[in-house]
Design a protein around this nucleic acid. Structure first.
Lengths: 196, 196
DNA sequence: ACCTGAACACCGTTCAAGT
DNA sequence: ACCTGAACACCGTTCAAGT
Protein backbone atom coordinates (compact mmCIF):
# COMPACT_ATOMS: atom_id res chain seq x y z
CA UNK A 1 0.00 0.00 0.00
CA UNK A 2 2.52 2.55 1.10
CA UNK A 3 4.52 3.81 -1.87
CA UNK A 4 7.87 2.09 -1.64
CA UNK A 5 8.87 3.41 -5.08
CA UNK A 6 9.70 7.01 -5.87
CA UNK A 7 10.82 7.57 -2.30
CA UNK A 8 14.23 8.28 -3.86
CA UNK A 9 16.35 11.05 -2.43
CA UNK A 10 13.80 11.29 0.32
CA UNK A 11 14.90 8.85 2.96
CA UNK A 12 16.62 5.91 1.33
CA UNK A 13 19.36 7.48 -0.76
CA UNK A 14 21.90 5.78 1.43
CA UNK A 15 20.51 2.31 0.70
CA UNK A 16 20.14 3.17 -2.98
CA UNK A 17 23.77 4.22 -3.26
CA UNK A 18 24.96 1.03 -1.58
CA UNK A 19 22.84 -1.05 -3.93
CA UNK A 20 24.16 0.75 -7.00
CA UNK A 21 27.69 0.30 -5.69
CA UNK A 22 27.17 -3.45 -5.35
CA UNK A 23 25.73 -3.61 -8.85
CA UNK A 24 28.82 -1.83 -10.19
CA UNK A 25 31.14 -4.17 -8.27
CA UNK A 26 29.32 -7.23 -9.57
CA UNK A 27 29.59 -5.85 -13.10
CA UNK A 28 33.33 -5.43 -12.69
CA UNK A 29 33.19 -1.65 -12.98
CA UNK A 30 35.27 0.84 -11.05
CA UNK A 31 33.45 2.68 -8.30
CA UNK A 32 32.95 6.40 -8.85
CA UNK A 33 30.95 8.40 -6.36
CA UNK A 34 29.79 10.78 -9.09
CA UNK A 35 28.64 7.92 -11.32
CA UNK A 36 26.81 6.32 -8.40
CA UNK A 37 25.05 9.60 -7.69
CA UNK A 38 24.11 9.91 -11.37
CA UNK A 39 22.54 6.45 -11.37
CA UNK A 40 20.64 7.26 -8.20
CA UNK A 41 19.29 10.40 -9.87
CA UNK A 42 20.86 12.89 -7.49
CA UNK A 43 23.59 15.50 -7.75
CA UNK A 44 27.22 14.54 -7.20
CA UNK A 45 27.26 16.32 -3.85
CA UNK A 46 24.22 14.53 -2.44
CA UNK A 47 26.03 11.38 -1.21
CA UNK A 48 27.96 13.60 1.20
CA UNK A 49 24.87 13.70 3.47
CA UNK A 50 25.13 9.92 4.00
CA UNK A 51 28.81 9.16 3.59
CA UNK A 52 31.54 11.49 4.79
CA UNK A 53 33.74 10.44 1.87
CA UNK A 54 34.24 7.64 -0.62
CA UNK A 55 36.05 5.47 1.91
CA UNK A 56 33.03 5.62 4.23
CA UNK A 57 30.88 4.17 1.46
CA UNK A 58 33.44 1.42 0.81
CA UNK A 59 33.51 0.64 4.54
CA UNK A 60 29.72 0.39 4.65
CA UNK A 61 29.86 -1.93 1.63
CA UNK A 62 32.47 -4.12 3.35
CA UNK A 63 30.51 -4.27 6.63
CA UNK A 64 27.40 -5.26 4.74
CA UNK A 65 29.37 -7.93 2.92
CA UNK A 66 30.72 -9.42 6.16
CA UNK A 67 27.25 -9.41 7.63
CA UNK A 68 25.85 -11.41 4.71
CA UNK A 69 28.88 -13.70 4.60
CA UNK A 70 28.50 -14.42 8.31
CA UNK A 71 24.82 -15.26 7.87
CA UNK A 72 25.56 -17.67 5.02
CA UNK A 73 28.39 -19.31 6.96
CA UNK A 74 26.20 -19.77 10.03
CA UNK A 75 23.48 -21.32 7.92
CA UNK A 76 25.93 -23.67 6.23
CA UNK A 77 27.90 -24.68 9.34
CA UNK A 78 25.23 -27.14 10.43
CA UNK A 79 24.93 -30.90 10.48
CA UNK A 80 25.09 -33.93 12.76
CA UNK A 81 28.85 -33.99 13.27
CA UNK A 82 31.95 -31.84 13.27
CA UNK A 83 33.10 -33.00 9.85
CA UNK A 84 29.85 -32.10 8.14
CA UNK A 85 29.73 -28.65 9.72
CA UNK A 86 33.32 -27.81 8.81
CA UNK A 87 32.81 -28.91 5.22
CA UNK A 88 29.57 -26.91 5.02
CA UNK A 89 31.40 -23.85 6.32
CA UNK A 90 34.18 -24.32 3.78
CA UNK A 91 31.87 -24.77 0.80
CA UNK A 92 29.79 -21.74 1.81
CA UNK A 93 32.91 -19.60 2.10
CA UNK A 94 34.29 -20.39 -1.36
CA UNK A 95 30.81 -20.09 -2.88
CA UNK A 96 30.43 -16.59 -1.49
CA UNK A 97 33.97 -15.73 -2.58
CA UNK A 98 33.40 -16.81 -6.16
CA UNK A 99 29.96 -15.23 -6.44
CA UNK A 100 31.12 -11.92 -4.95
CA UNK A 101 34.75 -11.78 -6.03
CA UNK A 102 35.11 -8.00 -6.23
CA UNK A 103 33.22 -7.46 -2.98
CA UNK A 104 35.39 -9.99 -1.15
CA UNK A 105 38.53 -8.26 -2.37
CA UNK A 106 37.17 -4.97 -1.08
CA UNK A 107 36.23 -6.60 2.24
CA UNK A 108 39.78 -7.85 2.74
CA UNK A 109 41.58 -4.81 1.33
CA UNK A 110 44.42 -3.87 3.62
CA UNK A 111 44.30 -0.13 3.20
CA UNK A 112 42.22 2.13 5.44
CA UNK A 113 40.45 -0.64 7.27
CA UNK A 114 38.10 0.95 9.77
CA UNK A 115 37.37 -0.40 13.25
CA UNK A 116 33.82 -1.10 12.11
CA UNK A 117 34.99 -3.30 9.26
CA UNK A 118 37.39 -5.17 11.51
CA UNK A 119 34.60 -5.79 14.01
CA UNK A 120 32.27 -6.96 11.25
CA UNK A 121 34.86 -9.43 9.98
CA UNK A 122 35.32 -10.86 13.47
CA UNK A 123 31.57 -11.26 13.92
CA UNK A 124 31.27 -12.99 10.55
CA UNK A 125 33.69 -15.76 11.52
CA UNK A 126 33.26 -16.08 15.28
CA UNK A 127 29.64 -17.23 15.14
CA UNK A 128 29.86 -20.03 12.59
CA UNK A 129 33.21 -21.26 13.92
CA UNK A 130 31.73 -21.70 17.38
CA UNK A 131 28.79 -23.55 15.82
CA UNK A 132 31.21 -25.97 14.23
CA UNK A 133 32.60 -27.11 17.55
CA UNK A 134 29.36 -26.77 19.55
CA UNK A 135 28.16 -29.94 21.17
CA UNK A 136 31.27 -31.89 20.34
CA UNK A 137 32.24 -34.67 22.64
CA UNK A 138 35.48 -33.96 24.42
CA UNK A 139 37.32 -36.79 22.72
CA UNK A 140 36.66 -35.56 19.19
CA UNK A 141 38.34 -32.19 19.31
CA UNK A 142 41.54 -31.03 20.93
CA UNK A 143 40.38 -27.87 22.72
CA UNK A 144 43.76 -26.21 23.04
CA UNK A 145 44.37 -25.97 19.33
CA UNK A 146 40.92 -24.69 18.50
CA UNK A 147 41.59 -20.99 17.94
CA UNK A 148 44.74 -21.85 16.09
CA UNK A 149 42.92 -24.22 13.77
CA UNK A 150 40.10 -21.73 13.27
CA UNK A 151 42.61 -19.15 12.08
CA UNK A 152 44.30 -21.62 9.78
CA UNK A 153 40.92 -22.72 8.45
CA UNK A 154 39.84 -19.21 7.55
CA UNK A 155 43.26 -18.46 6.09
CA UNK A 156 43.24 -21.57 3.91
CA UNK A 157 39.74 -20.93 2.56
CA UNK A 158 40.46 -17.26 1.97
CA UNK A 159 43.70 -18.16 0.21
CA UNK A 160 41.91 -20.63 -2.07
CA UNK A 161 39.28 -18.00 -2.84
CA UNK A 162 41.96 -15.42 -3.66
CA UNK A 163 43.71 -17.88 -5.96
CA UNK A 164 40.50 -18.64 -7.85
CA UNK A 165 39.57 -14.99 -8.14
CA UNK A 166 42.89 -14.03 -9.68
CA UNK A 167 43.27 -16.95 -12.07
CA UNK A 168 45.91 -19.03 -10.26
CA UNK A 169 43.35 -21.78 -9.70
CA UNK A 170 40.39 -22.99 -11.76
CA UNK A 171 37.04 -22.59 -10.03
CA UNK A 172 36.20 -26.18 -11.02
CA UNK A 173 39.19 -27.42 -9.02
CA UNK A 174 37.53 -26.27 -5.80
CA UNK A 175 35.14 -29.25 -5.79
CA UNK A 176 38.14 -31.47 -5.25
CA UNK A 177 40.49 -29.24 -3.29
CA UNK A 178 38.09 -27.87 -0.67
CA UNK A 179 37.27 -31.30 0.80
CA UNK A 180 40.99 -32.15 0.67
CA UNK A 181 41.86 -28.98 2.56
CA UNK A 182 39.12 -29.65 5.10
CA UNK A 183 40.41 -33.18 5.65
CA UNK A 184 43.85 -31.77 6.40
CA UNK A 185 42.38 -29.29 8.89
CA UNK A 186 40.47 -32.06 10.62
CA UNK A 187 43.62 -34.11 11.07
CA UNK A 188 44.99 -31.29 13.15
CA UNK A 189 41.92 -31.15 15.33
CA UNK A 190 41.78 -34.80 16.22
CA UNK A 191 43.78 -36.00 19.20
CA UNK A 192 46.99 -37.68 18.05
CA UNK A 193 46.57 -41.45 17.70
CA UNK A 194 49.93 -41.95 19.42
CA UNK A 195 48.45 -41.60 22.89
CA UNK A 196 51.88 -41.68 24.51
CA UNK B 1 83.62 5.04 -13.31
CA UNK B 2 80.78 5.33 -15.81
CA UNK B 3 78.27 7.98 -14.69
CA UNK B 4 75.37 6.03 -13.24
CA UNK B 5 73.78 9.23 -11.93
CA UNK B 6 72.19 11.91 -14.07
CA UNK B 7 71.37 9.35 -16.76
CA UNK B 8 67.71 10.20 -15.99
CA UNK B 9 65.20 10.44 -18.78
CA UNK B 10 67.88 9.10 -21.09
CA UNK B 11 67.62 5.34 -20.98
CA UNK B 12 66.46 4.29 -17.53
CA UNK B 13 63.25 6.23 -17.02
CA UNK B 14 61.38 2.95 -16.98
CA UNK B 15 63.44 1.58 -14.09
CA UNK B 16 63.25 4.91 -12.28
CA UNK B 17 59.45 4.97 -12.49
CA UNK B 18 59.19 1.43 -11.17
CA UNK B 19 61.49 2.29 -8.27
CA UNK B 20 59.50 5.40 -7.40
CA UNK B 21 56.30 3.37 -7.59
CA UNK B 22 57.68 0.83 -5.13
CA UNK B 23 58.76 3.62 -2.80
CA UNK B 24 55.24 5.05 -2.90
CA UNK B 25 53.71 1.62 -2.23
CA UNK B 26 56.03 1.02 0.71
CA UNK B 27 55.10 4.44 2.09
CA UNK B 28 51.42 3.57 1.87
CA UNK B 29 50.67 6.23 -0.72
CA UNK B 30 48.30 5.94 -3.63
CA UNK B 31 49.92 5.52 -7.00
CA UNK B 32 49.51 8.41 -9.43
CA UNK B 33 51.24 8.32 -12.77
CA UNK B 34 51.55 12.10 -12.81
CA UNK B 35 53.09 12.17 -9.33
CA UNK B 36 55.53 9.41 -10.30
CA UNK B 37 56.58 11.39 -13.36
CA UNK B 38 57.03 14.51 -11.22
CA UNK B 39 59.33 12.64 -8.83
CA UNK B 40 61.31 11.25 -11.74
CA UNK B 41 61.75 14.78 -13.07
CA UNK B 42 59.92 14.30 -16.34
CA UNK B 43 56.65 15.54 -17.80
CA UNK B 44 53.41 13.72 -17.09
CA UNK B 45 53.29 12.38 -20.64
CA UNK B 46 56.78 10.87 -20.59
CA UNK B 47 55.85 7.54 -18.90
CA UNK B 48 53.73 6.77 -21.95
CA UNK B 49 56.91 5.85 -23.84
CA UNK B 50 57.59 2.99 -21.41
CA UNK B 51 54.14 1.98 -20.19
CA UNK B 52 51.09 1.96 -22.45
CA UNK B 53 48.90 2.95 -19.50
CA UNK B 54 48.80 2.88 -15.72
CA UNK B 55 47.80 -0.77 -15.64
CA UNK B 56 50.91 -1.70 -17.61
CA UNK B 57 53.06 -0.11 -14.91
CA UNK B 58 51.13 -1.97 -12.21
CA UNK B 59 51.60 -5.23 -14.12
CA UNK B 60 55.35 -4.63 -14.39
CA UNK B 61 55.43 -3.93 -10.66
CA UNK B 62 53.57 -7.17 -9.93
CA UNK B 63 55.82 -9.24 -12.23
CA UNK B 64 58.88 -7.80 -10.54
CA UNK B 65 57.38 -8.62 -7.16
CA UNK B 66 56.73 -12.24 -8.10
CA UNK B 67 60.24 -12.55 -9.46
CA UNK B 68 61.76 -11.37 -6.18
CA UNK B 69 59.32 -13.44 -4.10
CA UNK B 70 60.22 -16.54 -6.12
CA UNK B 71 63.94 -15.93 -5.56
CA UNK B 72 63.47 -15.55 -1.82
CA UNK B 73 61.29 -18.64 -1.64
CA UNK B 74 63.82 -20.72 -3.56
CA UNK B 75 66.60 -19.56 -1.30
CA UNK B 76 64.57 -20.38 1.81
CA UNK B 77 63.20 -23.74 0.67
CA UNK B 78 66.44 -25.50 1.46
CA UNK B 79 67.56 -27.89 4.16
CA UNK B 80 68.33 -31.54 4.84
CA UNK B 81 64.75 -32.80 4.91
CA UNK B 82 61.27 -32.13 3.67
CA UNK B 83 60.09 -30.61 6.95
CA UNK B 84 62.86 -28.05 7.10
CA UNK B 85 62.37 -26.97 3.51
CA UNK B 86 58.60 -26.57 3.87
CA UNK B 87 58.98 -24.52 7.02
CA UNK B 88 61.64 -22.36 5.37
CA UNK B 89 59.32 -21.75 2.45
CA UNK B 90 56.48 -20.82 4.78
CA UNK B 91 58.53 -18.39 6.87
CA UNK B 92 59.97 -16.74 3.75
CA UNK B 93 56.49 -16.28 2.32
CA UNK B 94 54.99 -14.56 5.35
CA UNK B 95 58.13 -12.47 5.82
CA UNK B 96 57.85 -11.16 2.26
CA UNK B 97 54.12 -10.60 2.73
CA UNK B 98 54.55 -8.53 5.87
CA UNK B 99 57.52 -6.55 4.54
CA UNK B 100 55.79 -5.78 1.24
CA UNK B 101 52.13 -5.71 2.21
CA UNK B 102 50.91 -3.22 -0.39
CA UNK B 103 52.95 -4.83 -3.16
CA UNK B 104 51.60 -8.28 -2.32
CA UNK B 105 48.05 -6.99 -2.44
CA UNK B 106 48.76 -5.51 -5.87
CA UNK B 107 50.36 -8.80 -7.00
CA UNK B 108 47.24 -10.75 -6.04
CA UNK B 109 44.67 -8.18 -7.14
CA UNK B 110 41.94 -9.89 -9.07
CA UNK B 111 41.18 -7.15 -11.55
CA UNK B 112 42.89 -6.91 -14.92
CA UNK B 113 45.43 -9.62 -14.31
CA UNK B 114 47.59 -9.91 -17.41
CA UNK B 115 48.95 -13.16 -18.81
CA UNK B 116 52.44 -11.97 -17.90
CA UNK B 117 51.52 -11.55 -14.25
CA UNK B 118 49.85 -14.95 -14.14
CA UNK B 119 52.93 -16.56 -15.66
CA UNK B 120 55.19 -14.75 -13.17
CA UNK B 121 53.11 -15.98 -10.24
CA UNK B 122 53.32 -19.56 -11.49
CA UNK B 123 57.09 -19.31 -11.88
CA UNK B 124 57.44 -17.87 -8.38
CA UNK B 125 55.82 -20.90 -6.76
CA UNK B 126 56.67 -23.77 -9.11
CA UNK B 127 60.42 -23.61 -8.50
CA UNK B 128 60.58 -23.57 -4.72
CA UNK B 129 57.75 -26.09 -4.39
CA UNK B 130 59.60 -28.57 -6.54
CA UNK B 131 62.70 -27.98 -4.43
CA UNK B 132 60.75 -28.91 -1.34
CA UNK B 133 59.97 -32.36 -2.60
CA UNK B 134 63.23 -32.91 -4.53
CA UNK B 135 65.28 -35.87 -3.43
CA UNK B 136 62.57 -37.20 -1.16
CA UNK B 137 62.47 -40.91 -0.60
CA UNK B 138 59.35 -42.47 -2.00
CA UNK B 139 58.00 -43.43 1.39
CA UNK B 140 58.06 -39.91 2.84
CA UNK B 141 55.69 -38.20 0.47
CA UNK B 142 52.47 -39.36 -1.12
CA UNK B 143 53.10 -38.43 -4.77
CA UNK B 144 49.49 -38.33 -5.87
CA UNK B 145 48.48 -35.56 -3.51
CA UNK B 146 51.49 -33.36 -4.21
CA UNK B 147 49.97 -30.71 -6.48
CA UNK B 148 46.91 -30.64 -4.26
CA UNK B 149 48.98 -30.05 -1.14
CA UNK B 150 51.12 -27.45 -2.92
CA UNK B 151 47.99 -25.49 -3.75
CA UNK B 152 46.67 -25.77 -0.22
CA UNK B 153 50.07 -24.73 1.16
CA UNK B 154 50.24 -21.57 -0.94
CA UNK B 155 46.61 -20.80 -0.15
CA UNK B 156 47.12 -21.19 3.59
CA UNK B 157 50.21 -19.00 3.66
CA UNK B 158 48.64 -16.37 1.46
CA UNK B 159 45.52 -16.38 3.62
CA UNK B 160 47.57 -15.89 6.78
CA UNK B 161 49.45 -13.04 5.10
CA UNK B 162 46.19 -11.39 4.04
CA UNK B 163 44.81 -11.69 7.57
CA UNK B 164 47.90 -10.06 9.05
CA UNK B 165 47.97 -7.30 6.49
CA UNK B 166 44.38 -6.32 7.15
CA UNK B 167 44.43 -6.51 10.94
CA UNK B 168 42.52 -9.77 11.50
CA UNK B 169 45.66 -11.36 12.90
CA UNK B 170 48.60 -9.96 14.87
CA UNK B 171 51.94 -10.24 13.07
CA UNK B 172 53.46 -11.63 16.28
CA UNK B 173 51.02 -14.55 16.15
CA UNK B 174 52.72 -15.81 12.98
CA UNK B 175 55.69 -17.19 14.91
CA UNK B 176 53.34 -19.69 16.46
CA UNK B 177 50.75 -20.22 13.76
CA UNK B 178 53.02 -20.72 10.75
CA UNK B 179 54.74 -23.83 12.20
CA UNK B 180 51.32 -25.10 13.28
CA UNK B 181 49.95 -24.66 9.78
CA UNK B 182 53.01 -26.32 8.30
CA UNK B 183 52.62 -29.28 10.63
CA UNK B 184 49.05 -29.68 9.45
CA UNK B 185 50.15 -29.60 5.81
CA UNK B 186 52.79 -32.23 6.49
CA UNK B 187 50.25 -34.57 7.99
CA UNK B 188 48.49 -34.57 4.66
CA UNK B 189 51.65 -35.40 2.77
CA UNK B 190 52.66 -38.37 4.85
CA UNK B 191 51.27 -41.77 3.90
CA UNK B 192 48.46 -42.76 6.23
CA UNK B 193 49.69 -44.83 9.17
CA UNK B 194 46.72 -47.19 8.79
CA UNK B 195 48.39 -49.24 6.07
CA UNK B 196 45.24 -51.25 5.40
C1' DA C 1 17.07 17.96 7.06
C1' DC C 2 18.36 17.19 2.54
C1' DC C 3 19.87 18.46 -1.80
C1' DT C 4 21.93 21.61 -5.77
C1' DG C 5 25.45 24.14 -8.58
C1' DA C 6 29.62 26.14 -9.03
C1' DA C 7 34.36 25.86 -7.87
C1' DC C 8 39.02 23.79 -6.73
C1' DA C 9 42.68 20.79 -7.19
C1' DC C 10 43.63 16.88 -8.86
C1' DC C 11 43.53 12.49 -12.23
C1' DG C 12 44.60 9.31 -16.88
C1' DT C 13 44.97 9.66 -21.67
C1' DT C 14 45.79 11.73 -26.19
C1' DC C 15 48.28 14.25 -29.64
C1' DA C 16 50.63 17.73 -32.12
C1' DA C 17 55.03 19.53 -31.75
C1' DG C 18 59.79 19.90 -30.43
C1' DT C 19 64.97 18.08 -30.17
C1' DA D 1 63.85 7.71 -30.21
C1' DC D 2 62.35 10.22 -26.45
C1' DC D 3 60.17 13.91 -24.30
C1' DT D 4 57.08 18.39 -23.78
C1' DG D 5 52.81 21.29 -23.39
C1' DA D 6 48.28 21.96 -24.11
C1' DA D 7 43.88 19.86 -24.22
C1' DC D 8 39.93 16.68 -22.99
C1' DA D 9 37.02 14.26 -20.11
C1' DC D 10 36.80 12.75 -16.04
C1' DC D 11 37.54 12.42 -10.53
C1' DG D 12 36.75 13.56 -4.96
C1' DT D 13 35.82 17.21 -1.97
C1' DT D 14 34.12 21.67 -0.37
C1' DC D 15 30.78 25.27 0.33
C1' DA D 16 27.45 28.81 -0.26
C1' DA D 17 22.85 28.68 -1.41
C1' DG D 18 18.29 26.91 -2.10
C1' DT D 19 13.69 24.38 -0.39
Amino acid sequence: MSSTARTYHHGNLRATLLQRAEDALAAGEDLSLRELARRAGVSHAAPRRHFADKQALLDALAEDGFSRLGAQLSQAATGPDFSTRLLGFARAYVTFAVEHAALLELMFAGKHRSAGVRAASERAFAGPLSMIVAGQEAGEVVPGTLEEVATVAVATLHGLAAMVNNGMLEAAALDEIVPAAVERLELGLRPRPSGA
